[in-house]
């Protein structure tokens, strides 16, 4: 059976994956306009500046939207269906895809607060996922 896809680690995205390996979520922040951005990109999509730093973010956000896969599009996920994919809006602004763990799919809601958790997949890759965060 095919393995699940893993990120292709490049010079551009290495700081992201090194941070998750150490249990930290870091995103690019534009030094020109101070905005955080994701997806990872060479230039700021708002002001086009190439000047950015990797800055730690809170790891907190809300589920903007979510879907539950019943169809198996990739054989490596055959035993996972039904599984969720969520679009999380981080408190710092950017959106990222992920999964919510530790809760049944039927309990997912748009705008539910979540916080990042880290799941080691290989020696090199640790995936950021999210779990529900109460009291927010």
């Amino acid at each position: 059976m095919a393995d699940k896809p893993l990120p292709t680690i490049t010079d551009e995205n290495r700081p992201f994956w090194e941070a998750t390996r150490h249990g930290e979520l870091r995103l690019q922040r534009c030094r020109q306009c101070d905005r955080y951005r994701y997806p990872i990109a060479a230039s700021c999509p708002r002001c086009l500046s190439l000047d950015a730093e990797w800055a730690a973010v809170s790891g907190r956000g809300r589920v903007f939207s979510y879907v539950v896969f019943h169809q198996v599009y990739h054989q490596a996920f055959k035993d996972d269906v039904p599984y969720n994919v969520v679009l999380v809006r981080l408190d710092e602004g950017p959106f990222m895809f992920s999964n919510v763990v530790g809760v049944g799919n039927e309990q997912l809601r748009c705008d539910m607060p979540v916080t990042v958790v880290f799941e080691r997949v290989t020696d090199e890759v640790t995936l950021p996922r999210f779990r529900p965060e109460d009291n927010r």
Partner: peptide, 10 residues
């Protein structure tokens, strides 16, 4: 790119 399939987004 490959970034969405990591989370099973197909």
């Amino acid at each position: 790119g490959d970034s969405w399939g990591i989370w099973g987004m197909f």
